[in-house]
Computed example of a mutant assay.
Amino acid sequence: MHKDWKTANQTLSQAITDYRKASPELARAFSGLANVATAPGELSPKTKELIALGIGIAGRCDGCIGFHTAAAIRHGATRAEILETIDVAIYMGGGPSYVYGAQALEAFDQLSGS
């Protein structure tokens, strides 16, 4: 079964928007953390999104896969870079990461228009 990653990202975005309204103080704090963590530094924002994607795969988080794949694409990630990220995530996360890695590649192909 294939997942529609664009729709999944839109649905999750709406749920997050609803949560932000319900808990604005925590949402602002988390957004601040995300902004600091992904800001350009010694690592580029693209590299940071690839790291986040790898963690999302190893952590078995569908939402993380969808969001960080889209963010990596916005920062110029290629399919080859996504594949290497998936490879490392599988190495670190074993069999479950193999399944989620396949989903991440599917997400890249859908979200990038490949």
Rank of each mutant, 00 (worst) to 15 (best):
S13R: 13
S31T: 15
L111A: 00
I57W: 12
Y91K: 03
C64I: 08
G76W: 00
T11Y: 14
R74T: 14
M92G: 08
A72F: 01
M1T: 10
S31F: 12
L26A: 07
N35S: 15
T38F: 12
Q14A: 14
H75I: 07
G66T: 04
P24N: 05
G94C: 02
D87C: 04
L83S: 12
Q110C: 06
L43F: 13
T38Y: 15
G63L: 04
S13P: 11
A71K: 05
P96A: 10
E25L: 10
V99D: 12
G93H: 05
T11Q: 14
S13N: 15
R20D: 15
A70E: 07
G93E: 08
V88M: 09
V36M: 14
G76Y: 01
A52P: 05
F30D: 09
G101Y: 01
S112N: 13
A37D: 15
G66I: 07
R74P: 11
S23E: 13
C64M: 03
R79V: 06
P40T: 12
K46C: 09
G66S: 06
P24R: 01
I90W: 03
A58C: 14
K46E: 09
Y91L: 13
W5N: 07
R28W: 15
Y98Q: 11
S23T: 09
M92L: 09
L83W: 08
L50S: 04
T7K: 13
D87T: 15
A8T: 15
Y100C: 01
R60F: 14
G95E: 15
Y91I: 11
L111S: 00
L50F: 02
I86E: 02
D109V: 09
D109W: 03
G56E: 09
F108C: 02
E84K: 00
G95A: 13
G56W: 05
A27G: 02
Y91P: 07
T17C: 10
T47P: 05
M92S: 06
V88E: 04
I55N: 12
T47Q: 07
T85E: 03
A52K: 07
H68T: 08
A107W: 05
Q103V: 13
K21W: 09
L33E: 12
G76Q: 02
L33Y: 06
W5A: 01
I65D: 06
Q103K: 04
N35D: 14
D4H: 04
V36R: 07
I86V: 08
L53S: 03
R74G: 06
I55S: 07
A58D: 13
S97A: 01
I51G: 04
L43I: 08
R20G: 10
L105R: 03
I86N: 01
S114L: 13
G54E: 07
G59K: 09
G66C: 06
D18I: 05
P40L: 12
L43V: 08
D18W: 10
I73G: 01
I86W: 02
A58N: 13
N9S: 12
E106F: 01
A22T: 10
G93T: 11
A89C: 02
L12E: 15
A104H: 00
L12P: 11
G101S: 00
R28N: 14
K46N: 06
G95C: 11
F108R: 00
Q103L: 10
G101V: 05
L83I: 14
Y98V: 13
